[in-house]
Nucleic acid binder design. Structure first.
Length: 581
RNA sequence: GCCGAUGUAGUUCAGUGGUAGAACAUCCCCUUGGUAAGGGGAAGGUCGUGGGUCCGAUUCUCACCAUCGGCUCCA
């Protein structure tokens, strides 16, 4: 609580300093946040101004400014903030007759508090202005963009230093950095931004994960389907994507002629438009509707690692976590109403199993139940009855499964409520991975139906779900989670054999043959053994096997475990036994 | 898309108004090695792209592109 007061007070001092240095500045809001504070201000700043502002803040802090709280009438407040349009707007939004203001030195702010009594309580060495960013007023793109100044603040200088060190350490785990260092993937402007090119080791990692995924899906009663990358415009019009999702879709391909004909400007007789798929759902629906379905056939659980393309705005792209082409580990469950609960539970169990299998602790995953906005019922597909049922059953199942979830009103998709699982990256940003969603839109639009036990046509329930979310995003988070040092089963190279000299290459190959159940590589570069070990360690290979005269003689290997010391000489059989453990 | 920052060899980085350097990686030669870098040599850059200022620009300036941090949006 105290720290929050300090941080919040610092944001006022920040605003105070900006006002001194830039008298025309217009102030938005300035709260305390995790690890610090910010203030949104209409003022033009460059990063080099931060130093000036920080200096000013320290000057002000030294003056032992007292924070004085006062209730004033709205009329008075309007006068005080006459030249502050954003504050005036806030005043009007306050329901009460009076508003609370805080005065600190020559600076007055509309504010509920709480604050420290005086700047004496603030350690002027324990804060630091961090960075500038743009932020829309009230978080709305249509509003003007203010300049947000972020600051860090802690109890003491030591704590601040500690935090900065921690951030530095975290940056070393960044998947974009490790992706380069471990030679996993890259992007190329010439190929297209936001499109990932997976290198051999990255593709191997992907494949290991996909194999695991495939095996587990078969075990869990899923069937695989496979669908194209493009679909006719008519399909996307019918699904609603053409209308509602166009902001995130690549524009259509005109298909009425070849590229050659196009280049020759030949006349087009007939033309169709095709769109890159941003989602797999309509294709799966097409499979469903391909023949009449009986209540006896349900549920269908159809999974596909489907690569989709979304035209994300440039500024939103980021490493593997936000890209333009990505592969969802998608599945659709089409079932009867009486099967919904059971299916939801199965999916949640599956999701939890996946997190456990990849070492994500439940506390590092945040779960959100996204519900409809009760004040805006018109923007949603489906009827109230369906929504009430699905929202309450999602909640019930989430509770029964012991999920520690937050409910978020108005966060549902227009087509249905959902349960989202988000994982934090190394910089503390949350990324949606697993998701479990109801869909009232597609069954309606595609008139999906089955024949029930009374011989009547009935509309099935449709669930979308993804476990990883996308392979790209999940692998990005996985790289950070393990800091690139993957567990044995996930390592693209599991074992590297290092012959000491040229004379040991033959023996290295013999050893490799005995380990052919594993992903093994021989490093037969003409380098010293020290160098090979260094490279193997930097590559984060779980086991390095040194073979030289001694080992060749004794029919053994010398094992070195990643990050650790020499485990000593042993027979291959013994090494294999240890691996099993 | 918007606000801010960055952009020099494959990588990590120096550097300058007079057409660029280091380390590692690469290639060649020597070395035949014992648990985190053996030695020598060579090659490698239209200094993100395109305009402008200047006798001259990688350096100053403008525009664009990409990347990074935010905002908005999202798997």
């Amino acid at each position: 609580m105290k720290m929050e007061e300090i941080r919040h007070s610092l944001s006022h001092i920040l605003a105070y300093s900006v006002k001194e240095l830039f008298p025309d500045a217009k102030f938005g809001i300035g709260p305390s946040i995790e690890n610090g504070f910010y203030y949104d201000i209409e003022v033009e700043l460059k990063e080099e101004d931060l130093g000036k502002i920080e200096k000013k803040m320290k000057e002000i802090l030294k003056k032992n400014i007292v924070f004085k709280n006062k209730e004033v009438t709205k009329e008075e407040a309007r006068e005080i903030f006459a030249d502050q349009p954003y504050k005036l707007q806030l005043i009007e939004e306050i329901p009460e007759e009076t508003v609370s203001i805080y005065t600190s030195g020559d600076f007055v702010d509309l504010c509920k508090g709480p604050h420290v009594k005086s700047t004496k309580e603030i350690d002027s060495k324990a804060f630091k202005l961090q960075k500038l960013a743009g932020a829309y007023w009230k978080g709305d793109e249509k509003n003007p963009m203010l300049t947000r100044i972020y600051g860090l603040a802690f109890e003491s200088e030591d704590k601040l230093e500690e935090h900065l060190k921690m951030m530095e350490e975290a940056e070393k785990r960044d998947h974009r950095k490790l992706g380069k260092e471990l030679d996993l993937f890259h992007t190329d402007e010439e190929v297209g931004i936001g499109l990932i090119l997976w290198h051999p080791k990255g593709a191997m990692l992907w494949r290991i994960i996909e194999d695991f995924w495939f095996k587990k899906h078969l075990q869990s009663g899923y069937e695989l389907v496979r669908t194209p990358h493009i679909g006719n415009r008519r399909l996307w019009e019918r699904s609603g994507h053409w209308g509602f999702y166009s902001g995130s879709m690549y524009p259509p391909l005109e298909v009425g002629q070849s590229l050659e004909e196009l280049n020759n400007k030949s006349e087009v007789k007939e033309s169709e438009q095709f769109l890159l798929k941003p989602m797999n759902c309509p294709f799966h629906v097409s499979i469903y509707s391909n023949k009449p379905r009986s209540y006896r056939d349900l549920p269908f659980r159809w999974a596909e690692t489907g690569t989709v393309y979304r035209f994300e705005k440039k500024g939103e792209l980021s490493g593997l976590t936000r890209v333009r082409g990505f592969t969802q580990d998608d599945a659709h469950i089409i079932c009867r109403k009486d099967q919904v609960e059971e299916e939801l539970k199965r999916v949640i169990d599956f999701i939890l199993y996946i997190y456990q299998a990849f070492g994500f602790k439940q506390e590092s995953v945040n779960v959100y139940l996204s519900l409809r906005d009760p004040d805006n019922k018109t923007k949603y597909a489906g009827n109230d009855e369906g929504w009430d049922f699905s929202e309450s059953i999602l909640r019930k199942v989430a509770e029964e499964k012991g999920l520690n979830f937050k409910e978020e009103k108005g966060e549902a998709a227009f087509y249905g409520p959902k349960l989202d699982f988000k994982i934090k990256d190394v910089l503390g940003r949350e990324w949606q991975c697993s998701t479990l969603q109801f869909d009232f839109n597609l069954p309606e639009r595609f008139q999906m139906e089955f024949t029930n036990d009374k011989g009547e046509k009935e509309q099935p329930y449709m669930l979308h779900r993804a476990l990883f979310g996308s392979f790209e995003r999940f692998i990005g988070l996985l790289i950070e989670h393990y800091a690139g040092a993957f567990p044995f089963w996930l390592s693209p190279i599991q074992i590297k054999i290092l012959p000491v000299g040229e004379g040991h290459r033959e023996y290295a190959r013999e050893v490799a043959e005995k380990l052919d159940n594993f992903r093994v590589k021989i490093d037969d570069n003409n380098e010293t053994i020290g160098k090979k070990i260094r490279e193997g360690e930097m590559e984060k290979v779980p086991y390095l096997l040194v073979v030289g005269d001694r080992e060749k003689e004794n029919g053994t290997i010398s094992v070195r475990q990643r990050g650790k010391i020499d485990l000593g000489e042993m027979k291959i059989e013994e090494f294999l036994k240890n691996l099993e453990k």
